[in-house]
Design a protein around this nucleic acid. Structure first.
Length: 417
RNA sequence: GGAGAGAUGCCGGAGUGGUCGAACGGGACGGUCUCGAAAACCGUUAACGAGCUUGCUCGUUCCAGGGUUCGAAUCCCUGUCUCUCCGCCA
């Protein structure tokens, strides 16, 4: 949600931003509606003041009742129109994208994202590298077939050593983030419409949501939704910022319309798992906090020994709520490509305005907090481990940092008969 | 799932039709006193929106949404949430 004052004072700014971000909301029409709303508001407030004044008189002078009744007819008409206009304004304004940061690259698709650095050595294999699906099948640790049988295509099981490796990675990552100042949460995995709207998933990603029948509830697409909304309608002490939160949850996405894209393996699925980083901070600190989350992501991937590149996401590939986004793409030898494993977005005050999350300092400064939403690690990282640590016989060596958590240093290939 | 009670400011808690943005108490902040502090005493203490003479005026807000009334924290309806008891249960 953008600040209406900016729309009133500088509609050109809003217009240019919307155009740049491919938003087709008619800003001129919006400005006209907003003006009508303001005019009505002034009229209504004057009428109410008059009504309130007359009402007080009624105690001494009962004749005034008739005057009030007449006045209320006009007032009612204006209020009805105001409600109508407000709904129209709201409908438009909820679709307006956040203001873009100055250093977001231009471009339309992920192909236009700008790589800002490459880290780590790609492993060289004296054999044909397999992708994670092939490795998962050899080792019996990924079961998509039964995921489909029991739930639906797009669901899967981690099995045996694969499940242990995955859990080990998540537990390790949570501990690392706690060391870096994050508070660990266990979060609800369902949330109401206001939460999804407030975090910017509605209306923009409505078709990605699993709604629960007969309830104002949907399965979360990410713990960002429940962690950011944790402070809905709250005023945070400025001195308590930045607040860093993390949680490990399943994430549910319908992936409507994306069948066929990256469909091999468990890259694009209906349920995956994620350790999330969320930061609430003062507006002036959000660029710094955004970089901090990126450092954490890089630290985790480096500790796991995975080669990756960092990209500055271009405007066309950046969701409407974001002001700036970094993706990290890990190297997948089996695919022979860098593929997205994390994303890290500075949402500035877009979510905090929708969710009414403010800060207040001792001196009385107040405003909306900024939020950063970044991945820690996801199941895709386990896939990257499988592909980068694979051996010729199909076995997989466990990254050193995870061995204390798995209790084994290799997932053995079954003996061939 | 069944029965009952409740939701008021930063917190506790009064208020059952106007004089209520809201008693009283606590907290916080400012002041007096003090070498300093404590205590005591005095005072201040909401947010949001609109307007302009930028400090004031007006409007809105006592869980939310409707309704009754000249007038609603207060009465009526609906919803949400919380608590207690019973049942069920990891």
């Amino acid at each position: 949600m953008i600040d209406l004052k900016i729309l009133r004072e500088n509609p050109e700014l809003v217009k240019n931003n919307a155009k740049l971000r491919g938003c087709d909301v008619d800003i001129d029409a919006l400005v006209a509606l907003d003006k009508e709303y303001l005019d009505l508001t002034r009229d209504i407030e004057n009428l109410r003041a008059e009504r309130n004044r007359l009402s007080k008189e009624c105690q001494k002078n009962p004749e005034a009742r008739e005057t009030v009744k007449q006045l209320k007819v006009t007032l009612g008409e204006k209020e009805a129109r105001q409600t109508e206009v407000k709904a129209l304004v709201d409908e438009k304004i909820t679709w307006l994208p956040n203001f873009l940061a100055a250093d977001v690259p231009m471009g339309e698709t992920d192909a236009d994202n700008v790589a800002i650095r490459f880290v780590g050595e790609k492993p060289q294999f004296p054999f044909q590298a397999r992708d994670h699906q092939a490795i998962g099948e050899i080792l019996g640790i990924i079961d998509t077939e039964r995921g489909a049988k029991v739930a639906q295509s797009g669901f899967y099981y981690w099995v045996g050593a694969g499940a242990l490796l995955t859990q080990a990675m998540y537990f390790w990552a949570q501990k690392e983030l706690v060391k870096r100042g994050f508070t660990l949460f266990m979060s609800p995995c369902a949330a109401k419409e206001r939460t999804l709207f407030g975090t910017g998933y509605l209306p923009f990603f409505k078709d990605q949501t699993y709604n629960l029948a007969g309830e104002d509830l949907a399965l979360i697409g990410t713990s960002e939704q429940t962690l950011v909304a944790y402070h809905t309608d709250e005023v945070l002490a400025a001195e308590s910022l930045p607040r860093r939160y993390t949680a490990y949850t399943p994430c549910f996405r319908t992936e409507a319309g994306s069948y066929g894209k990256e469909s091999r393996g468990i890259f694009r699925v209906h349920q995956f798992h994620k350790v999330e980083q969320i930061i609430f901070c003062l507006p002036e600190d959000s660029p710094k906090c955004h970089e901090f989350c990126l450092e954490n992501e890089e630290y985790l991937l480096q500790s796991l020994g995975l080669p990756y590149r960092v990209v500055n996401v271009c405007v066309g590939d950046l969701g409407a709520p974001g002001a700036k986004k970094y993706d990290i793409e890990a190297w997948y030898p089996g695919f022979g490509a860098y593929r997205e494993v994390t994303s890290n977005t500075n949402l500035t005050d877009f979510q905090s305005r929708r969710l009414n999350i403010r800060y207040k300092s001792d001196k009385g400064d107040r405003g909306y907090v900024h939020t950063i939403s970044a991945t820690g690690l996801t199941d895709r990282v386990v896939c990257a481990i499988l592909e980068n640590y694979q051996q010729e016989d199909g076995s997989v060596v466990i990254p050193e940092v995870l061995r204390p958590f798995t209790g084994f240093d290799k997932i053995q290939a079954p003996i061939k008969k």
